[in-house]
């Protein structure tokens, strides 16, 4: 094959692929988000593996059992596992005492800067503004030291 040396001998084709999706929340997701709408955080539990899943799953990834037991996670039992700053906002991975997994959310800026390990609570939006989405938790904020 002869080499192409002239720029105008090279062609390209421009196009785009527009796609849209509508995702169901799933069996566990539907229940979890409906509870968030009520201002509650719940996790699913596998007793035999001593695991508590947040976000909840309908299965235990360890023993692969179907999970039907759920339990309340107190919204003020969180702590900052790690955080980063994005466009001037603090985004934290919040974990909860005795729970596997965690939730991503905005961390409200306090007088002191964020630190790993500080105790936080979930602050929900006003009831009428909740949609059944993770954003129903408006932010996390530091609880009394």
């Amino acid at each position: 094959m002869e080499r192409i040396t002239e720029g105008d001998q090279i062609r390209r084709w421009n196009d785009h692929i527009p796609l849209q999706w509508k995702y169901t929340a799933g069996v566990a997701g539907e229940r979890f988000l409906q509870l968030l709408k009520q201002g509650k955080i719940q996790a699913s539990v596998c007793r035999s593996c001593n695991k508590t899943y947040l976000p909840p799953k309908i299965f235990c990834k360890e023993c692969f059992a179907q999970l039907s037991e759920w339990r309340d996670v107190p919204s003020d039992s969180g702590y900052v596992y790690s955080f980063t700053a994005v466009n001037g906002e603090i985004i934290a991975l919040v974990k909860f005492d005795g729970v596997d997994g965690g939730l991503l959310g905005r961390l409200r800026k306090g007088r002191e800067g964020p630190r790993i390990g500080i105790k936080v609570k979930a602050v929900f939006r006003r009831k009428e503004d909740r949609k059944g989405a993770l954003s129903d938790i408006e932010y996390f904020e530091r609880t009394g030291v």
């Binding site: 169901t24 929340a25 799933g26 069996v27 566990a28 997701g29 309908i58």
Partner: peptide, 11 residues
Amino acid sequence: RMLETGKELSF
């Protein structure tokens, strides 16, 4: 259309 997510269907 199913309520289950892909992970849940697989499970």
